[in-house]
Measured scan of single mutants.
Amino acid sequence: LVRYRTISKIPQITLNFVDLKGDPFLASPTSDREIIAPKIKERTHNVTEKVTQVLSLGADVLPEYKLQAPRIHRWTILHYSPFKAVWDWLILLLVIYTAVFTPYSAAFLLKETEEGPPATECGYACQPLAVVDLIVDIMFIVDILINFRTTYVNANEEVVSHPGRIAVHYFKGWFLIDMVAAIPFDLLIFGSGSEELIGLLKTARLLRLVRVARKLDRYSEYGAAVLFLLMCTFALIAHWLACIWYAIGNMEQPHMDSRIGWLHNLGDQIGKPYNSSGLGGPSIKDKYVTALYFTFSSLTSVGFGNVSPNTNSEKIFSICVMLIGSLMYASIFGNVSAIIQRLYSGTARYHTQMLRVREFIRFHQIPNPLRQRLEEYFQHAWSYTNGIDMNAVLKGFPECLQADICLHLNRSLLQHCKPFRGATKGCLRALAMKFKTTHAPPGDTLVHAGDLLTALYFISRGSIEILRGDVVVAILGKNDIFGEPLNLYARPGKSNGDVRALTYCDLHKIHR
């Protein structure tokens, strides 16, 4: 019993810090008490220290592992850092350059016999395009090294910054494609005289377009951006097909006994025919423009016929181009109408809503002055909100995010209106959640004399007048207030005048 009563005193000691020596009952000389009392004092002292730490809000209350900052290894790049964003855009520009100039170089340097010394005699450094290609190869190699040090988000939505895990993730992902696209074939085969082989191998750079397509997928929600990307894709495919079309004609031209190829026909049409040795002929500019003209006309199913396939190889390629053109029509131009419709969806919704308003007016036989006010209010409210119901949009977000959005939407009023000066951010967040926005066209009466005042109004834009009878008592403008002081009276009061809008007004109100 003594032991039980001794232990039962522990909660009292913990909360009230009572010393055991003052209790005459606990001072009985028993061996059990002498053993338990020192333990009680020690526990009391420890609990006292913990309570003191909690009340003082000291940093040592938290466990040590929670006080440590997340460790980022040296030379690790955050995937959302500004440097990584700028670097990704730079790589994107280099990939676009590669997609345009690599097929052009591979096709127009394929057994090209233009006048001038061969590239091997001039030297590697004197070729501007080769120098640019070398810079692109170096940048792609540097990009691989950067990807080995860039964080990523795993399946659990955690940012991984450990170098080993980053390397394994990159090896399992895009490393092989990036490595093949970054191989400097110019340096590996330079001086061997195989410019045709170098041009063909350099087309491996186009593998990076797969990554670019995935990154550009984030802009699919913007109709104008999608339309622009589709047109660029169409032009890029036409450019690639033009390079292939020229390569076919250029390879067949020296081996044909009869002059029936499209390059021969082009030379005869523009007065620059090929001679018996295969030299001469149109310039590279004429060849490229004509090839691009043929691919565009074939892809769009126009086909004027002034550039036509004559050999079997050219006919087979033309059939493939027609098939590609039909697929592009289905996948690209078939979506253009939907994209344009999405661009004008706001206008369509406006006309639909206006039609419903006019049908309501016609069905209920609203008189002319009231009908005009109804239409003007709808037009003004639509121009202010673009038909978007803010309350319906915010309803799907958590309250903390709703408060931040409301604070942002009402920031101008909260910053410049005098009653809100000096208020804490928590108070402003709470008030912003209570605001209701209303609009009024010129001549609209917001409050009639004798109406119950259940709200306090803040003028965000425009001006109003307060009338008693036919006498203008006051004219209020931006950041002015009218209405009933909230919670100042037990019952809502009545208006002693009319409140009429002089201009288009936007008002925020808080109800009782």
Rank of each mutant, 00 (worst) to 15 (best):
G303D: 01
C427Y: 01
C126E: 01
G123P: 05
T113Q: 12
S383Y: 15
K172D: 01
L323K: 01
G334Q: 08
Q415S: 10
I244W: 01
V136H: 01
R349E: 04
P82M: 07
G325V: 01
E121I: 11
I339F: 03
G426A: 07
L394R: 02
Q127K: 01
I77K: 01
L428W: 05
L92V: 05
L129I: 03
G223F: 04
S192K: 11
H448F: 06
L327I: 05
L188D: 09
W89Y: 03
D143E: 01
H439C: 07
H351W: 15
V307Y: 03
H380S: 14
A430H: 15
L216A: 09
A119H: 13
A238N: 01
K287I: 04
F420D: 03
F185L: 09
E252H: 03
S412Q: 12
Y219T: 05
F171E: 01
V86F: 12
H416F: 12
A238E: 01
I166V: 05
R362L: 03
T98Y: 01
D88Q: 01
F397Q: 01
L207P: 12
A181M: 01
E195G: 14
H239P: 01
H73L: 05
S105A: 08
N310M: 01
E157I: 12
G164C: 09
F333W: 06
D88E: 05
R214E: 06
K434M: 04
I144Q: 01
K66P: 04
A338L: 13
A338Q: 06
F296Y: 04
L413V: 10
L241C: 05
A338C: 07
K172C: 09
L401C: 03
T113N: 14
Q341S: 10
I177C: 14
K287E: 01
T424G: 13
V336P: 03
L110F: 08
Q127G: 05
D137I: 01
V302Q: 03
M390D: 05
F101P: 01
V95F: 01
I91Y: 01
T300F: 04
A403F: 01
I284H: 01
G278T: 01
K172N: 03
E221P: 04
Y329T: 15
H416Q: 13
L90P: 01
F228W: 04
L67Y: 04
V307K: 01
F435Y: 02
F296C: 04
L129G: 12
S345P: 05
E121C: 05
H448Q: 08
L129K: 06
T76N: 01
A167E: 01
G223W: 12
I146S: 01
S277K: 03
Q379N: 04
T102N: 01
D133C: 01
L241K: 01
G426K: 03
Q253V: 13
M179G: 11
Q269W: 01
G164I: 14
S337T: 11
S313Q: 04
L370P: 03
K434P: 01
Y219R: 08
I388S: 03
L446D: 01
V393D: 01
P82S: 07
K272A: 01
T150C: 04
Q372P: 01
V226W: 09
G193L: 05
S105D: 02
Y377G: 10
P282W: 01
V136N: 15
D88N: 01
T76K: 01
P103L: 01
K84Y: 04
W87R: 01
V131K: 01
K436W: 05
L431I: 09
R205V: 03
P184D: 01
W75P: 01
Q415P: 04
F171Y: 04
Q353I: 01
T233P: 01
R373V: 04
F333I: 10
K111Q: 03
A432H: 02
P117H: 07
F360T: 02
I77Q: 01
P442R: 06
P282C: 01
K172Q: 11
L355K: 08
H169I: 04
Q127F: 11
A242I: 01
L227V: 11
A449K: 12
W174Q: 04
L90I: 07
W174G: 04
L355Q: 13
N154C: 09
I339H: 03
Q341G: 10
K215F: 03
T76F: 04
P184G: 01
L428I: 06
T424W: 01
K436T: 12
H73S: 07
G223V: 04
T295Y: 01
F420S: 02
D286V: 01
W75Q: 01
I361C: 06
C427I: 14
H162W: 07
M251L: 11
F360R: 03
N410I: 04
N306C: 03
H439S: 06
R211S: 01
H416P: 01
I284S: 01
L207C: 13
L188A: 13
F397Y: 06
H408W: 04
Y384S: 10
I270L: 08
L414V: 07
P82A: 12
T233E: 04
G193N: 05
F171L: 13
H79N: 02
V307C: 01
G346S: 10
P163T: 05
P273K: 04
V226A: 14
L413I: 10
E158F: 04
A440D: 01
L428N: 03
A238G: 03
E252F: 01
Y384D: 11
G191S: 09
I340V: 10
L241S: 01
A99H: 01
R71G: 07
L134Y: 06
G164N: 14
D404C: 02
S258A: 09
A107E: 01
V336H: 02
P118M: 11
N410W: 01
V159N: 01
L230N: 14
V131P: 01
G278N: 03
L93Y: 01
Q68P: 08
K287H: 01
S383A: 11
T295C: 13
D133V: 01
L409W: 03
A330L: 04
A432K: 01
I339P: 01
A204V: 07
H416S: 10
L230S: 05
I177M: 04
S301M: 05
V210W: 15
D186G: 14
F397N: 01
R165T: 08
P103H: 01
F378N: 05
Q127P: 06
H79D: 01
M322C: 06
L241T: 04
M390V: 05
D286C: 01
H239E: 01
L428S: 04
T233D: 01
V212W: 13
L327C: 03
D88T: 01
I135P: 01
F234C: 04
K111A: 08
D257G: 14
L187D: 12
L197W: 04
V132F: 12
S308I: 03
T295N: 01
A430E: 11
Q341K: 07
V100R: 01
N306H: 01
R373W: 01
L413F: 04
G281E: 01
G261P: 01
I135Q: 01
K425Q: 11
L394I: 08
E314I: 01
N265C: 03
S283T: 05
F294A: 01
T113R: 08
L323W: 11
G191D: 04
Y246E: 01
S383T: 09
G249S: 01
R165F: 09
W87P: 01
R358S: 10
S412I: 15
C406M: 08
Y293T: 01
P419S: 12
D286W: 06
L431Q: 03
I332Y: 06
V95R: 03
M231V: 05
S298Y: 04
A432M: 10
I340C: 03
F333S: 03
T347N: 12
I72H: 14
Q68A: 13
L216T: 04
N156C: 11
K272W: 01
T445S: 06
V307F: 01
I405G: 02
S194V: 15
T347V: 04
L129S: 11
W174D: 01
G278R: 03
G271W: 01
K395C: 08
F185M: 10
Q127R: 05
A381P: 03
L299V: 01
L109P: 01
S298V: 13
F185D: 01
I405E: 02
T311P: 01
A107C: 01
I91K: 01
F378P: 06
R371L: 02
I248P: 01
H448I: 04
A381V: 10
V160Q: 06
H169N: 09
V307R: 01
G443M: 04
A155M: 12
W245R: 01
P419M: 04
A348E: 08
I198P: 10
